[in-house]
Amino acid sequence: MSPLLSVQGVTKRFGGLVAVADVSFDIAPGELVGLIGPNGSGKTTLLNIMSGHLSGDQGRILLDGEPCSGLKPQGLARRGLMRMFQLTRIFPRMNVLDNLLVGGRALGLAADEAKTRANALLEELQIAHVGHLDAGQLSGGQMKLLEFGCCFMRTPRLALLDEPFAAIHPTMKEIMSRFIRARHAEGQTFVLVSHDMPVIVELCPRSICMNAGRVLSDGATSQVLAAPAVIEAYLGGAAA
């Protein structure tokens, strides 16, 4: 099968620092790929390049076989690439329901359709009871769930999730991982960045481990986590 997303030789430098160095991999439709690596290994930078928030210095990215390197975030969103940020980004002065509607309407859903969909998402993510509140009044975990929901107003071709489970209550983590598992079973494609190894092991059949901007290992999650280079990167870096 032809890859949904193809990253080919992407490199990004910040001054003298090479944040992403010649990274290449393919993601097939329906895959759920974990992107792991120690802090500062270039995961978020790579995600930023994939979602159009940064432009790479070299290399190219193909979405459905078409180059999409020059596109802005909204252009990529329109082509089905949805990004969840590490630091939560929602619309604090709009109510929770409207937060969801923005994405639905922007990507072409009719008003009624968007509302139905948003309500279904609120139920599924268990935040329907706060649907009428302004998003700025939610707790940190609820905001995460809301942003998570924003990414699924229209079924994305590819969802890039940056640390969705960081610093939230286990119940909410469970809601999200159940959601991811269910969508994955339906054929939804994900890239999941996380430091939470048990979750990666549980959810992701395949993982890519980065260190110092390079891909250290790419393959079945169990093998990636067992690879000596990966262990070295984590233990060497964390000195644990």
Binding site: H53, P73, F91, P92, R93, G103
Partner: peptide, 10 residues
Amino acid sequence: DDEIAAARSG
């Protein structure tokens, strides 16, 4: 409220 989040949503 948030231009970057709006762009993300398309």
